[in-house]
């Protein structure tokens, strides 16, 4: 009886142990997820970008590359393209520098380390819209606490004040300050993820190498630039990749803080695609704006992943 009952079980187990069966079964949920939530909308976006679709008439009538040709003559699109690069590269440069410092600091032992780690992770775990609304208050034209501090320090709102005689800096009302503001918030947002990635990378550096460097009397800077950073490069490149992709494709910070203003000075491709495609109803053109950088991002991603893999192998 036992033998009769256990035989199918054993057969079942053996069946599932087969790699060519188990592997597709295990990967299929992820594959399904990607196809349904990424692949399908992506293909739809490509179709829209080649069509005359609107929010009121989403049927596909192909117009070739007309939408792409039109946006290339749109000064706001060009401005958004420039802003996207500026916004992404400056914020990610800051993220790389700050996350490296933070990760190195957090890899050391000190009192309250857990609390500091928690606080650093907080911006990543909290909803971005909530955080951005907090920043909206910090950069408020009238009630900004930063302006209040500067006024209290005598640097603002007084004749010949370092930051001018106006009572406020108008962070989101002046093009350069507005761009600086959205960059700061994006840096704040991406920093925790990059820090955690780098922290994992640091903890993976073999202790023997660091001990050997210490025995040889290597200084902090020498250890940093000749041992730690070279070993961390693949991990840093992955952190940068995540940050760049997130920043290139996200509109939340810009939308909540400035809606792309003043005068489109903080408009980025993602927010402009939303305004044109959804708010104005021109789905085709909105999709063209959104997809414009896809080839660049895809190529860049492939290069970074290849670089990271090569460094790992080396």
């Amino acid at each position: 009886m036992d033998a009769i009952e256990t035989a199918p079980k054993a057969h079942f187990r053996e069946y599932w142990d087969r790699r060519r069966i188990l592997a597709p079964v295990m990967i299929s949920p992820a594959l399904l997820y990607i196809v349904a939530l990424v692949g399908f909308p992506f293909v739809l976006a490509i179709l829209y970008s080649l069509s005359d679709a609107t929010t009121g008439n989403p049927s596909i009538h192909f117009v070739g590359l007309r939408n792409f040709a039109t946006i290339l003559h749109d000064p706001v699109f060009i401005r958004s393209l420039e802003n996207t690069f500026l916004f992404t590269f400056v914020s990610q440069a800051l993220v790389v520098v700050l996350s490296s410092i933070l990760a190195l600091a957090l890899s050391e032992d000190f009192r309250g380390k857990q609390v500091v780690r928690f606080l650093i992770l907080l911006p990543w775990t909290a909803p971005i819209s909530l955080g951005a609304i907090g920043w909206l208050w910090i950069f408020d034209s009238v009630f900004s606490p930063m302006d209040w501090l500067l006024r209290a320090a005598g640097l603002l709102g007084v004749p010949h004040g370092f930051f001018g005689a106006d009572s406020n800096l108008y962070w989101l009302g002046r093009p350069i300050l507005a761009m600086a503001s959205v960059i700061v918030v994006q840096t704040w947002r991406i920093l925790p993820l990059a820090t955690v990635i780098l922290l994992a990378g640091i903890s993976a550096i073999p202790n023997e190498i660091l001990d050997a460097a210490a025995v040889d009397g290597a200084s902090f800077w020498r250890r940093l630039f000749q041992i730690e950073i070279p070993l961390l490069l693949p991990v840093i490149s992955i952190a940068v990749l995540f940050g760049v992709v997130f920043t290139f494709t996200d509109m939340t910070v810009v939308y909540v803080l400035t809606r792309g203003g003043p005068i489109n000075s903080t408009q980025v491709l993602a927010s402009w695609a939303f305004f044109v495609g959804i708010e104005a109803g021109d789905l085709g053109q909105g999709a063209a704006v959104a997809l414009f950088l896809f080839p660049v991002l895809a190529g860049g991603t492939a290069l970074v992943l290849r670089f990271a893999r090569r460094r790992e192998v080396a």
């Binding site: 034209s141 106006d166 108008y170 989101l172």
Partner: peptide, 11 residues
Amino acid sequence: TPEIFSWSAVS
């Protein structure tokens, strides 16, 4: 003042 360049619908 320059605040009007940064206004939202409720400002």
